[in-house]
């Protein structure tokens, strides 16, 4: 859709800077209107952007590592994620969608998608990767989850039940992947280093202990 806008039309652009893409221009225009109409200030927009950029998969990884180490924390996290997080001093922003944490086991494997758009647990993992927003992932993972996960390098045995979670509404899902073997005695930091973004979406396993 936006490709046409990004094509450099030869001589026309030779003296100008690179043109912003269609979507970048549109976002700029909407931002300018919001400020002009007094809906929000530039400072408020910047602080939202900064808040979002301050989150990354490292936040989620620390929480997964703690869940691996502390059974009672994990139980609370699965039952009521925001309460469990608040107890360890991790306050989710107000107005945040409801967070639900699910756990992968030797019997059940969860994988998350938003078929309608790109709903994602941004409050814990930051911005979603581009592939998560792609039409290919969103349409294929609901129909052929095993095939898609295999393309990510994860081959699941037929005995394992696959559960695709389509977050269409007010819930955001994060997966606690299976703890890698050979990690007995690892502390939270060394465990967190094995937890990848993709493993918390469910399309892959965490790194192995001896990579």
């Amino acid at each position: 859709m936006s490709n046409e806008q990004q094509v450099n039309h030869g001589d026309h652009d030779s003296e100008s800077e690179i043109q912003p893409s269609y979507y970048a221009s549109r976002a700029k225009a909407i931002e300018a209107l919001l400020v002009q109409k007094g809906v929000m200030t530039t400072n408020e927009i910047n602080s939202e952007v900064n808040a979002m950029d301050s989150k990354s998969p490292a936040d989620g990884a620390k929480i997964v590592a703690l869940a691996w180490l502390d059974d009672s924390f994990k139980t609370k996290l699965l039952a009521n994620a925001s309460e469990a997080l608040e107890e360890i001093g991790y306050k989710l922003p107000d107005e945040t969608p409801y967070l639900k944490v699910v756990e992968n086991s030797e019997d059940i494997h969860h994988v998350v998608v938003c078929t309608l758009c790109s709903c994602y647990p941004r409050m814990l993992l930051g911005r979603p990767p581009d592939w998560y927003k792609s039409l290919a992932y969103r349409s294929r993972v609901v129909v052929s989850p095993r095939e898609v996960m295999e393309e990510f390098g994860l081959r699941l045995s037929d005995d394992i039940e696959v559960r695709v979670l389509d977050s269409t509404a007010d819930l955001r899902y994060m997966v606690i992947p299976r703890r890698p073997l050979g990690t007995d005695g690892f502390d939270q930091e060394s465990l967190a280093a094995l937890v990848t973004r993709d493993s918390m979406i469910g399309v892959s396993d965490p790194l192995s202990a001896h990579f």
Partner: peptide, 13 residues
């Protein structure tokens, strides 16, 4: 559909 017959899709409605 190919896979475990217990494979599920969960969706919020």
């Amino acid at each position: 559909y190919k896979g475990n017959i217990a494979d599920k899709l969960l969706i919020d409605i």
